[in-house]
Design a protein around this nucleic acid. Structure first.
Lengths: 201, 201
DNA sequence: GATTGTGAAGAGCTTCACAGCT
DNA sequence: AGCTGTGAAGCTCTTCACAATC
């Protein structure tokens, strides 16, 4: 999907598996297998119809609808997320911002009045948000996540560098900047000692 | 490594592969294979010595030393990274900040004077930075990454939602917030339709 | 002529299971 | 008795290659 988006508007209406593979770093047969597995089909001799392919990709990932998310934590990371224009473009709607600190509660950030944590159940019920974003210090991450889940969110995006223990019925995706840098250090070390193979993204 | 860190200070000096596996969600034999592959050895009948194991893990990931990184992009994400205290704790040193916009060049951010892009080669040579962090708009990500690589960095951390095409000898790790949210939407959909299995992080 | 969809082959990764060490 | 290190077996994922299709 990113490879298609990065191409921007080309005249061509179709793209073949080899090009898709080159753009995303996988083999052509892999592209065909994967696309077949999500029900996207191409035209032999022609390739995949780009608009239909995008639609199939989006549908396979549950992006055929809008997802509402509440953000907890109006610190540096929270504010960066609020200013991130692509969420809305991709169908993610930050419907509310909450924070514990009285000094930021009541302030306006990117059109949202920051709410106190005591409002969490209320806000989630009223907005119908299904996703929660945890952008608070690690010491508070677990309790904040539990409050969100208790209030009804089905998925949690965790920016705190601390593993969350939540009910198995809640999806959790974590972004840990330190881990990411460690991974980069690891791969950089590998690239140095061994030769190189091309990698994606 | 995260599993060990999360245990905190226990009296026990050793840990066996079964416990490590349970804490990190993999099979005991897998733990032994992986640890053997990085040269960490345990004591039959006893397990792995925890301090030595931590040391071997850190060494295998290239974390036995400090990594210097330059940050390009003093926008929301860049500023959030600058304020992130854990980088320094884990041995990552943000040695310089660069930006294209004349309005921010020269400003002080977290102790660093923002440099213009024209200084990139100079800054990297002078500081000896080996890692580059790309926190610029997607339209500039590719060219900025190429400038960094040309100036000598060996690894790039990319926050722009755009795949980078770089020489195979450069390590690239990407953090794409939109992709992350999309992944959360996908997993949330899966959790709803299927039952649940426990997942890590 | 170009390209898909897909069985079959191949490669790589995971689990098993047990000899050997403490 | 408890646990590691590791060949071998089992399994899954990837690549090959080609008949079918446009």
């Amino acid at each position: 999907m990113r490879a298609l988006q990065a191409r921007g508007e080309t005249e061509r209406s179709h793209i073949n598996s080899r090009e898709l593979g080159e753009a995303s770093g996988v083999a052509d047969a892999q592209v065909r297998k994967d696309l077949a597995s999500i029900g996207a089909t191409g035209q032999p001799g022609v390739g995949y119809a780009i608009p239909e392919l995008m639609e199939d990709l989006r549908a396979s990932m549950g992006l055929h609808r809008t997802w509402k998310a509440v953000l907890v934590g109006a610190g540096n990371i929270g504010r960066a997320l609020l200013a991130y224009p692509r969420f809305a473009e991709e169908g993610f709607d930050l419907v509310a911002v909450l924070d514990r600190a009285p000094s930021v509660v009541g302030r306006k950030l990117a059109g949202h009045t920051v709410q106190p944590m005591s409002a969490v159940a209320d806000v989630i019920r009223r907005t119908g948000a299904e996703l929660g974003i945890v952008a608070v210090p690690p010491s508070e991450a677990q309790i904040v996540a539990e409050m969100l889940v208790h209030a009804g969110v089905r998925g949690v995006l965790n920016f705190a560098p601390r593993p969350l223990r939540l009910s198995g019925s809640v999806a959790v995706v974590a972004v840990d900047f330190t881990e990411t840098l460690e991974r980069l250090a690891f791969e950089t070390t590998m690239k140095r000692s061994l030769g190189s193979r091309s990698r994606d993204t």
